[in-house]
């Protein structure tokens, strides 16, 4: 078992444990911090797959910008474990059973799939580097790129209109 395999298992276990802790922690601020750990683990997976541009964008946009936004909103509203609304126990058990059933169905459907010979290439290949992604983005995908700028503008206007005190 090489260093790549060790890192893969370490990052996978870290991602799954932190994702479970996001769901079960009582204090919402702890949930945000555990979600940041999940995103760091997923960025580690991107680096293992040699998708370095996406790893950095994931860290900056998700763990940096979006999670700080969540944290600001939590602290602005002064939420903590005491004000946290709780579902009753039977609804929680039903939710966990529903999620577990979905997991069971998907795993059972994919277990027999003939994917043993397909390998995700690690530590190699240069399609994830910023040069190749940039060439593809600005040659083949330049119209979606421009449309996404309109999307951002409309989102910005929408946020200001919604958040305005009337």
């Amino acid at each position: 078992m090489g260093i790549t395999q060790v890192l893969f298992w370490f990052l996978s276990i870290m991602a799954i444990l932190s994702a479970i802790l996001v769901v079960i922690s009582k204090n919402p601020v702890h949930s945000v911090l555990w979600l940041i750990v999940v995103f760091v683990a997923i960025s580690g997976h991107y680096i293992l797959l040699n998708a370095q541009f996406l790893a950095i964008v994931n860290l900056i946009v998700y763990a940096g910008a979006i999670m700080v936004l969540f944290l600001f909103v939590f602290m602005l509203m002064n939420l903590n474990a005491e004000t946290e609304p709780q579902k009753n126990r039977w609804l929680k058990i039903a939710g966990v059973i529903a999620g577990g059933s979905l997991l069971l169905v998907l795993v059972a459907a994919l277990k027999k799939a003939d994917l043993k010979t397909q390998v995700a290439q690690m530590n190699n290949g240069d399609i994830g580097l910023i040069h190749n992604l940039g060439m593809s983005l600005f040659h083949d995908y330049v119209i979606p790129f421009e449309i996404s700028s309109v999307l951002f503008l409309s989102a910005m206007v929408g946020v200001v209109v919604i958040g305005k005190k009337d």
């Binding site: 769901v23 609804l91 039903a94 999620g99």
Partner: peptide, 12 residues
């Protein structure tokens, strides 16, 4: 599936 279970079990 952890995300789905979280959506179903939380009220916040």
């Amino acid at each position: 599936c952890i995300g789905v279970a979280g959506v179903l079990t939380r009220r916040n």
